[in-house]
Design a protein around this nucleic acid. Structure first.
Lengths: 345, 345
DNA sequence: CTGAAAGCGCTTACAG
DNA sequence: CTGAAAGCGCTTACAG
């Protein structure tokens, strides 16, 4: 199975490899007779010639590869959306994604090795994605080439980074509730010290302020962000402070809240409105009634990161200086069926 | 930012590049003085030298890249598990995964182009994954190199392929129910004409036969494999034939069945046992009570495919002839809390 | 308008 | 035990 090379095309077209290269690459500022061009194109076509990208890469020092280093690929559907976004943007730029999922539970040193492997492959840029929004410290060898952080920021702003607008998402969720007429809106927050916890709380308070609703401590609680804990917390808050609506840190906690409501004989949304966060389709769309929630822009972050890297690549070798402010991508409300006006009191 | 090459290492160690290459690659049958070896290794270390894989690929005609072509990456968490399995196996073999997700809704011709892109990249092998178990026809240019099908078979057995053992999974599920003492076991099947539909039904019937339980048509129904339709179908079957247990085509239908049971005042598992299929963690683990189900071996299929490709690569260039029988990977039962013995009648 | 030649960074017979 | 040299398949000044 001899593979066809540029020489074969040249021979068939009766021209030099130089010429073949010029016409196939449409090198600017190169005059080649139209007739010659056609002969070359036909020959290439006939032979099914595709340039060897490896050879091209060696020669041009551009591999057209961009590495996506992900902490724990695909344990979560979210990772998939990031990959898809990056992948489709890559396709549009003629780039190819190389995926590396970091060893589980590994830290700085292991990541250094993963980055090195990508570097040895001559990737043109690296995208570095974490599993959930947080602040990280960078592998030291991530500095010779364009690199972009996804769903993460390093404290120092060394690299461009893109994260969800947690505050804005929470604002959209709570405002949706407030505009439906709710004033007793509980917030079932996550108990982890991550940016989303603080951001979503900030959004919640902001909307309260907007609507001149006093902030009440007994309407706010924290728990592990899973269904079982969401269930317990919802029961507790429902019992102690009679909210008419629940804003849940995520869809999984909302799932628990559904159960709590059911047990208390509360019908959603007539007796209790609920809004989640994350838009995990499989939960949100399938709960009954379907859960109104807020989407995390994973696809968009993947695409944004790739676009940004591509831009840095085309801007030539001088890497923009930074420091970079993290870019916030909107978390849009996804209305479904779990919100209604409160019952008349 | 001059990158360090083999020449720099040679210079620093005071040897030829030939020697550097030999010691770093540990070329067999090559005698190099231990002292020289050490000098070379130290020099490489000091310079932080990593061989340029692109140059190596060009020279050796082995890129160490394997392409994973997936129909619609990451729309489903399943795709992620396949990627992860392939990725971790790739790492173990010193291979790197290149991911391409086929354009949405595209068919034969578009896939040809995707394969071609991978070929131009000089990938050593291609893994071709579909989104759910089914029979496909192959892009014609997938024949020059080792290729493996994941979650799919081509009718003709041209390529090695790996698929879930649907029958075995259904057998495990229904047997679990039968062994708990159930004899009136309903089956909520999918209405699509895909291998899983037939395989799971076959498994269901097989266990019935094993346990000398007559097959009753009114215990079996078909619907779209989503929660809403699962709900309707469950209500219908529950009403018309009083089963003590439900075997659901997938977890999403089981989700609907939970709701139906609830509305009919049936407690799971005391009044009604339910087993699902797919083990979509986010559903199965989080329903209440947690759903006993059957896992699809996505991770394992990804890993198996990569291993198989790696094997074909190391066996030299003569591609095994085939025809290949699809390899069935087991679908293990994942017991949770939705199964109990039937109530005494 | 077209082509000969150097060279990207490696590996690998081959010679010594 | 070690090294000089060819060549993988391209691109790109440069010359004509």
């Amino acid at each position: 199975m001899k593979t066809v090379g540029i020489r074969d095309v040249a021979k068939l077209a009766g021209v030099s490899v130089t010429t073949v290269s010029h016409v196939l690459n449409e090198t600017p500022h190169t005059r080649v007779a139209e007739e010659t061009r056609n002969r070359v194109r036909e020959a290439a076509q006939r032979l099914g010639y595709g340039p060897n990208r490896v050879a091209q890469a060696l020669r041009t020092r551009r591999s057209g590869l961009v590495g996506l280093l992900s902490e724990e690929i695909a344990t979560t559907p979210h990772a998939g959306r990031i990959i898809l976004g990056a992948q489709e943007a890559a396709r549009a730029h003629g780039l190819t994604l190389v995926i590396v999922s970091a060893e589980r539970g590994s830290h700085a040193e292991a990541h250094r090795a993963d980055v090195q492997a990508l570097l040895d492959r001559q990737v043109d840029a690296i995208l570095y994605a974490t599993m959930y929004h947080r602040t990280i410290s960078l592998p030291p060898n991530l500095s010779g080439l364009p690199a972009v952080l996804i769903d993460a920021t390093d404290g120092t702003g060394t690299l461009p980074s893109v994260i969800p607008d947690e505050v804005g998402g929470a604002v959209a969720a709570v405002r949706h509730l407030a505009e439906a007429g709710h004033r007793r809106i509980a917030f079932l927050n996550n108990s982890d010290d991550v940016p989303a916890t603080h951001g979503r709380l900030a959004g919640y308070r902001q909307v309260l302020a907007e609507h001149r609703i006093p902030y009440e401590e007994k309407l706010v609680g924290e728990a592990v962000s899973e269904p079982a804990e969401g269930y317990e917390l919802a029961k507790e808050i429902l019992a102690r402070s009679q909210p008419t609506a629940l804003f849940c840190y995520n869809d999984r906690m909302a799932m628990g809240a559904y159960r709590a409501a059911r047990e208390l004989g509360l019908t959603i949304p007539e007796d209790l409105s609920i809004v989640g966060f994350d838009n995990q389709e499989i939960i949100a769309a399938n709960l009954f009634p379907a859960l109104t929630t807020v989407a995390l822009p994973h696809y968009e972050m993947g695409a944004w990161a790739l676009e940004t890297a591509a831009e840095m690549l085309s801007e030539g070798s001088d890497r923009p200086a930074g420091p970079f402010e993290p870019v916030l991508l909107p978390c849009p409300l996804v209305p479904r069926d779990s919100v209604a006006p409160p019952r008349q009191t």
